[in-house]
Simulated scan of single mutants.
Amino acid sequence: MKNANPTRLFFGKRILVVEDEYFHADETRRRLEDLGATVVGPAANIRSALGLIASEQVDAAILDVHLGDELVFAVADELERREINFVFATGYDPSFIPLKYEGFALCAKAAELEKIAVALFDPDDLKKLN
């Protein structure tokens, strides 16, 4: 792998975190900040996430799929439209994610920050982590 510690890829980046569970959002925020990233959000719902995308610089995003009774796909669509890389971070079965998003990385919440970093910033190396 080109980068011995893939989490270093977060350094200096502005990462949008979309997560409705406070403890997951806070843990992700703290871990990303420890790696030198600036966290945009966290946003707990689609409206807040879309507002942050419209008003803040975002280099990449980590999206929880289930936000209460909403699904995050409207946020994914806006990020894709703006050509901002993102990953889905969820503990749920990935089979419910529409085929449209088949090429996007799916990670088990923020526990896989190495895999998330590579998927967002060096996708050619993602296969080496699997």
Rank of each mutant, 00 (worst) to 15 (best):
D77A: 14
L126D: 06
R47K: 14
L113R: 03
E33A: 04
N45V: 01
L35I: 06
L32K: 06
E56G: 06
E80W: 08
P123E: 06
E114K: 14
E33Y: 04
E56S: 15
V58T: 05
L63K: 03
E78P: 05
L50P: 02
N5P: 01
T38H: 13
D77K: 11
D59R: 12
T28N: 02
G36I: 09
A108T: 12
S48K: 14
E78M: 13
L106Y: 13
T28M: 14
L67Q: 05
G103M: 04
R82L: 12
F73D: 02
Q57K: 15
V72P: 07
N45C: 09
E114H: 13
A60C: 04
L79S: 07
F121V: 06
G36K: 07
G51F: 01
K127E: 12
V75D: 02
A110Y: 10
F73V: 05
L79W: 08
L120N: 09
E102T: 13
L99Q: 11
D64K: 04
P98N: 09
A117K: 06
S95Q: 13
Q57Y: 00
N85T: 12
Y101I: 03
G41R: 11
M1I: 08
E83G: 01
H24E: 01
A108S: 13
L129V: 10
V39K: 10
I84E: 08
S55W: 02
D124K: 15
F121I: 08
D20T: 01
A37I: 09
F73W: 13
P98C: 09
P6E: 04
A49E: 00
V118L: 11
S95H: 13
V58K: 06
L106A: 00
F10W: 12
L99F: 08
V39Y: 06
G68A: 04
D93H: 11
A117S: 10
R47Y: 01
D125I: 03
L35Y: 09
F11P: 02
D64A: 05
F86G: 04
R31Y: 00
E27P: 00
I53Y: 04
L67S: 04
R81W: 01
A4K: 15
D59K: 12
I116F: 02
D20G: 02
F23M: 14
R29P: 00
E80H: 14
A117G: 05
K109Y: 05
I97Y: 02
N45Y: 01
H24I: 15
L126E: 14
S48I: 08
S48V: 10
P6N: 07
E27F: 11
R8K: 14
F11M: 15
